[in-house]
Design a protein around this nucleic acid. Structure first.
Lengths: 327, 327
DNA sequence: TTGTAAGCGTTATCAA
DNA sequence: TTGATAACGCTTACAA
C-alpha cells in the first residue's frame, strides 16, 4: 500500500480510502490511484486490515458431515448471502462429535470470525462458554431450541415427527417401524423420532422397541433397514425412515424384492429432495426449508454487522408434509 | 496475551511460545502459563499472529457448485487432511462462471491463504496472472492439464470418455446418444464428451449431432434427456449420460415407461456413487477417485508449507470403468 | 479532501 | 530458557 501511495503521489491513507470508501476521494485522485493499483497489480492484505479494524470477513460454519448432501442446500444458502456481502465462509465438519465441535469452535474463534453458524443445538459446556464469552454472533440451526446461545433459525423436528405420524394414521396404517441414523449426540433425529412416537401414542398406538432401528448413512443402509424391519415383523404396514436417503434405499429394496409400495408396505421419509420425488413410487416426506435456513442464518449474521444491537432470537421456518405415492 | 503474561509473571513472548512452541519452555513455566490461559479463558488472536508471521492457516477452495453432491467427496477429503494439520477451509462456488471465479480468487488472495484449490483448469487471463504473481501454492483439479498454473491433481476426462465408448462398443451397441450438463466453460464435460466421440470414431461410428443434448442439473433432467433422445431416434441403443445424477434420472424414467434396461435401452453414467450402485438395475459408470483427489490436493498444499521448494507437478490419479447391469 | 500519528495483537530476531 | 525490540500492513481518529 505504501508503494502504491508513493507511485501515485498520495499518502497510504488515501489508497486505503480508494479501496474501502472511494466516495470520499476526489474523482481525479481516485482514478490516479486506481490506475497505479492496476499497474502494479496490488492485492490488498486483509489480514492487516482485519487486525487494524478489528473485524474480519470470515463466517464459520460447522456441520455434522460434509459428505451428507443434506447440508449442501443450507451451505448454498449461506454462501449465496455471504458472497453478496463480501464475506467468506469457513467450513468444517464435526463428524457428529460434540468434542470435535468444541475444538473447532475454539479454533474458529481464534480467527475472530464475524459470525458462526452451527448445525446443531446441543454442545459441550465448554463450547457454550466459549461462544458466550466471545460475543460473536452465533446462529444455531437444525433444530428448534428454547435456549439459543444467541440466535436460532430452524424448524421443529419434534412437530415434524408428529405430523408424519398423523399422516400415516390418516391413511389407515396401524403397525409401524422406524429407522434413522444413530441418535446419540443427534438431538434432531431424536426429536423427530420422539415426535413420531408421540403422535402414534396420541392415537393409542405403541411402537414395538424391536421395530426401532439405527443404521449407517447411505442408500444401502436404507435397504438394510427395510430388510431387517420386515424380517422382525412380517405384518408391519408402514415404515418411517427419518433422515438422509434411507427411504429411497428402502424403496429400491422393495423394487428388488418385488414388493408393492404402498400395497405391501408403505414408506415415508424425511428431507425432501429430487431423489424422493423421482423414486418409483415417489416418496412421501417431510420437507424442511433448508436453503431458506441457510439464507436466514447468513442474513442474521450480516445484519449484526450492520446493526450491533440486534436481539437474540429464534426463528421458526416451519416444515411441510408432502404426501406422495409411497404411502 | 499481555494480560496473560502479566498474570503469569512472564513476558508476552513466553506466552506466545507456550502456544506455538511449548517444547522451548521450561515445564514449570509452561504449566504456570497454561493455568492462567485456562483461568482467564484466553483465546489467542490468529489475525495478529498471521500478520506477524506472514502466514495464515487458511486454504481457499472454489468449486463450480456447492449444491452438487459431486464435490462433497472431494471437499471431505480436503477437509480431513486440513483438519489434521490445523488448517481451515474457506469455500465458495463460482456458479460455473469464470468471471466469478476470478473475483473469488482475487478476494481469497487478499486473505493471504496458505493455499488455493480450484476445481477446474480453465481460467480467465487475469485469474492466471493473479495466481502466478501471488506465489501462493495452487492446486487445480477436475481435469488433467498439461499447463498447470502450479500443481494439478486429477484424472483424464478425455480418457474416461474414450474408455466408456470402448465399453459400450464391446457390448455390441452401435447407435448412441449423449447428454450432459451445459458444456461451455466446463472443460471437464467437454473432454469427457470429446473422448467419447473419439472412441466411437475409432470404431467408425459417428454420433448424430441431434443425439447430443445439454440439460440442467438434477434427476428430473436425466428423465427429460432420456425422453427427448428416445423421441429423436427410436432405434437408439445406448445412452451415455455424463455427469451428476443424470443417468439415475434416465433409469427412473425407464422404470416409469416400462422400458427394459438394457434390453430396450442401455444407460451408462459417470461419477460412481451409491445412487448408481443401488439403482435397479445398477448403473455402469466411470468411477473417479474424488475423495483421494481432495486428500492429495490438500496434502500437496500442506507439504508446500513444510518444504518451500516443492516442485510444480501434475498427478494423475486415474479412473475406472465400472460395468454393471444397465449396459 | 487529504494527511499524520498511533495503534491493532501477535511473532521474528537477536541478545542475555 | 527467557526477554526486549521491532516489525507485520493496514485502519481509526483526528487534524489540517
Amino acid at each position: 500500500m505504501k508503494e502504491v501511495a508513493r507511485l501515485a503521489g498520495v499518502s497510504p491513507m488515501t489508497v486505503s480510502r480508494v479501496l474501502s470508501a472511494p466516495h470520499l476521494v476526489k474523482p481525479e485522485t481516485l482514478e490516479q490511484v486506481q490506475s497505479v493499483i492496476r499497474a502494479v497489480r496490488y492485492v490488498p492484505n486483509r489480514v492487516a486490515g482485519s487486525l487494524a479494524s478489528r473485524r474480519t470477513s470470515l463466517v464459520g460454519l460447522i456441520v455434522p458431515s460434509l459428505r451428507n448432501a443434506l447440508y449442501a442446500e443450507t451451505i448454498q444458502g449461506i454462501s449465496d448471502v455471504l458472497q453478496r456481502h463480501g464475506l467468506h465462509l469457513m467450513i468444517s465438519d464435526s463428524g457428529y462429535s460434540l468434542e470435535r465441535e468444541e475444538a473447532l469452535i475454539s479454533a474458529y474463534l481464534s480467527q475472530r470470525p464475524c459470525g458462526l453458524i452451527l448445525h446443531n443445538t446441543t454442545h459441550t459446556e465448554a463450547a457454550r462458554h466459549l461462544l458466550q464469552d466471545a460475543g460473536v454472533p452465533c446462529v444455531e440451526t437444525g433444530n428448534l431450541t428454547t435456549q439459543p446461545i444467541d440466535m436460532a433459525v430452524s424448524y421443529s423436528n419434534r412437530e415434524s415427527g408428529r405430523a408424519m405420524a398423523n399422516h400415516l394414521l390418516s391413511r389407515g396404517y396401524r403397525r409401524f417401524g422406524f429407522a434413522s441414523l444413530p441418535i446419540s449426540d443427534n438431538e434432531r433425529l431424536r426429536e423427530r423420532r420422539d415426535g413420531f412416537f408421540d403422535g402414534l401414542r396420541a392415537a393409542g398406538i405403541e411402537v414395538d422397541p424391536a421395530m426401532v432401528l439405527e443404521v449407517g448413512e447411505g442408500l444401502e443402509n436404507g435397504s438394510h433397514a427395510l430388510a431387517e424391519l420386515m424380517r422382525r415383523d412380517t405384518s408391519v404396514q408402514a415404515l418411517f425412515l427419518a433422515g438422509d436417503v434411507l427411504a429411497a434405499g428402502a424403496i429400491l429394496e422393495c423394487t428388488r424384492r418385488g414388493l408393492r409400495v404402498p400395497g405391501d408396505i408403505a414408506i415415508a421419509g424425511s428431507d425432501d429432495n429430487d431423489l424422493m420425488q423421482q423414486m418409483v413410487p415417489p416418496i412421501t416426506t417431510v420437507r424442511f426449508p433448508r436453503y431458506r435456513i441457510g439464507v436466514r442464518s447468513a442474513e442474521l449474521i450480516v445484519s449484526r454487522q450492520e446493526d450491533e444491537r440486534a436481539q437474540p432470537m429464534t426463528e421458526d421456518l416451519g416444515f411441510e408434509v408432502v404426501p406422495r405415492g409411497s404411502t
